[in-house]
Design a binder for these strands. Structure first.
Lengths: 159, 159
DNA sequence: ATATCCTGGATATCTACTATCCGGGATATG
DNA sequence: CATATCCCGGATAGTAGATATCCAGGATAT
């Protein structure tokens, strides 16, 4: 899994600490964790396309969450960055080779594929069961001053 | 996830259809699914190093399962090929940047990392819950003649 | 002795991830 | 209206890992 996922998750978490209408420029969001601005911007755009974040152009613009942290799961973010494809993709090698037979076995599922998909569904369900709000609450419980610190550094207080 | 995993799973399944002492040369195992012999051999060697398969050198040699299919889980095969590392690896970007603070926060777990690991554990458990024997039984139930066909083609009958 | 087969290393190719840059468009501010 | 700020999309490189091949050496059955 790409490092981009970690970037996106931390950025979403930081945005979750802010007010719903506090937009943070990509450059500031990147500087907060010393990430490359241009590349992080690509990931933020992916979050926008997925409907997780929203972008505001112009001065005092930036990125904010598109919906409340309670309605954003870890799966949402992972899928937005990595794509919806399964990590294990069945290439149907069972149908190649001398013993494949010419019968129309094509339409029946591969047993190994079914088994691997079952495991990936368990992974997806575990990701979908955890929301950004829950993560934020855990962080706030363990490090009470971190949300405050993030907000103070990220938000450009109005002139 | 690499295609190698699919290759390894199908090869292990084919070996599970055979007798415990029927060794199949890598070239024949590869030809069965039209896979590149040399590269498949690398994966078979990984299975040997993991203790899943055993290799027999010399004429009438080849590869066989090192233990019974009941004792081989899908997780065993996946870990043997892909390695034991987590797909999501926390780079601790939270500790970089201006707001990280110089306090000794290093030793406490990253909340996002914990959440992602929880999901991966669910995936691993789902893989560990399925054995090669169960997969083989399902295949045999749905395609009763496939194990026979695999054995007839793979095993070089004595002289 | 010989043919068969695995083992390990070296090498090459290709894809996806990481990263950067730039022109264009949108918007708040004065 | 002019300008500074900021997002958007495309083009472009570099790099690491996955895919793939080849060969010399070792082990073993016949």
């Amino acid at each position: 899994m790409g490092e981009r996922v970690e970037w996106a998750l931390h950025c979403c978490l930081n945005l979750a600490f802010l007010g719903p209408d506090d937009a943070v420029p990509a450059a500031r969001l990147a500087a907060f964790h010393e990430l490359p601005t241009a590349y992080l911007t690509k990931q933020l755009q992916a979050l926008v396309r997925a409907g997780i974040a929203a972008s505001v152009p112009g001065p005092r613009g930036g990125f904010r969450l598109a919906r409340s942290p309670e309605q954003i799961t870890l799966l949402d973010v992972v899928v937005a960055i990595e794509g919806p494809e399964y990590a294990f993709r069945c290439e149907e090698i069972r149908q190649r080779g001398p013993a494949s037979g010419s019968s129309g076995r094509t339409q029946v599922a591969c047993t190994i594929d079914v088994a691997m998909r079952k495991a990936e569904l368990a992974w997806r369900q575990a990701l979908a069961a955890q929301t950004l709000a829950e993560i934020a609450a855990t962080v706030e419980h363990r490090y009470p001053n971190m949300p405050v610190r993030a907000r103070d550094w990220l938000v450009v207080t109005g002139s």
